[in-house]
């Protein structure tokens, strides 16, 4: 019966890793509906009473409505502008050989390897010199910039794969290059745009180090920083609010991922073929 044993082993491994992947998250999520003493004394028990109101308390008294709004203010423009710029740039690099294009492309290629830590020192000091600390436009521009290499590569690979023949056919019909892009290529690259949108959205939503450095005002912090500072707020012993904050901070990206799973995975695979 080796086949059965193999099958048993296979399922054991698959399930164990599934527990490993979601177990800690579920544990934290359940803890959000307990009281602090329950969390500290009976960590593995279900809540004696499910305190659904904890989410509302985190949303209200712990300031997560504000943090969420800040994250949205930060994320949405960064995604919209980032996708637009990446699409245009990716198209240019996919379709044209133009003077300076090679060098620009090479510089972008290395952008994929540049660690943000190598930018943050001048960014911080120059931003403070120009009064951009605590200002969303500065933060958003920086978020867009560091994600451009990835976005451009992803879109370029989608455009390369969109058949050139269709573009030629469109041109024969009398379209300008602009028309080719708008009427023929862009519709073909729609899956790419969707994939990039979902990936960029989750990435920007998760941003931590950039806002850590560029946003210092408590009233303007995004969720990631709000969580960290709630954890470090010395006067509070409200663990259930921290757990509830974790739910608020992670649910949007989890839901988006589940809803767009296929695009998402396809985008990741396309992005890997750089």
């Amino acid at each position: 019966m080796p086949a059965t044993i193999n099958s048993f082993l296979k399922w054991t491994v698959l399930i164990l890793f599934a527990v490993f992947a979601v177990g800690p998250v579920l544990w934290m999520f359940v803890s959000a509906f307990k009281t602090t003493p329950e969390i500290l004394t009976t960590p593995f028990r279900l809540p004696s009473e499910w305190r659904w109101g904890n989410i509302g308390r985190a949303w209200g008294e712990a300031g997560f409505s504000r943090y969420t709004m800040n994250t949205i203010i930060m994320t949405v423009p960064a995604v919209v502008i980032g996708v637009a710029l990446s699409t245009l740039g990716g198209y240019a690099f996919a379709r044209f050989n133009f003077r300076g294009g090679g060098v620009a492309f090479f510089l972008l290629l290395y952008g994929l390897t540049v660690p943000f830590q190598a930018l943050m020192i001048p960014l911080f000091y120059n931003f403070s010199r120009f009064g951009l600390i605590n200002e969303y436009p500065g933060l958003i521009a920086a978020l867009i910039a560091v994600h451009l290499p990835f976005g451009i590569f992803l879109m370029r690979s989608f455009f390369v794969n969109a058949q050139a023949e269709i573009a030629d056919a469109a041109r024969i019909d009398g379209c300008s290059e602009y028309g080719v892009f708008w009427h023929a290529m862009l519709p073909l690259a729609r899956p790419g745009v969707l994939a990039l949108t979902t990936i960029l959205f989750t990435d920007q939503w998760k941003a931590f180090l950039l806002p850590l450095i560029l946003i210092q005002d408590d009233a303007r912090r995004p969720l990631t920083l709000g969580l960290l500072f709630l954890r470090d707020a010395q006067s509070q012993q409200q663990y259930e609010l921290l757990a509830a904050g974790v739910i608020i901070a992670s649910l949007p990206t989890i839901l988006l991922f589940l809803a767009t799973n296929r695009y998402f995975q396809r985008g990741l695979v396309a992005g890997s073929s750089k």
């Binding site: 890793f17 998250v25 989750t202 998760k206 941003a207 992670s250 990206t253 989890i254 991922f257």
Partner: peptide
């Protein structure tokens, strides 16, 4: 399921 942790912010 395996990808789920990657959707969370590292801060989370």
């Amino acid at each position: 399921v395996y990808y789920l942790p990657a959707v969370l912010a590292l801060a989370v």
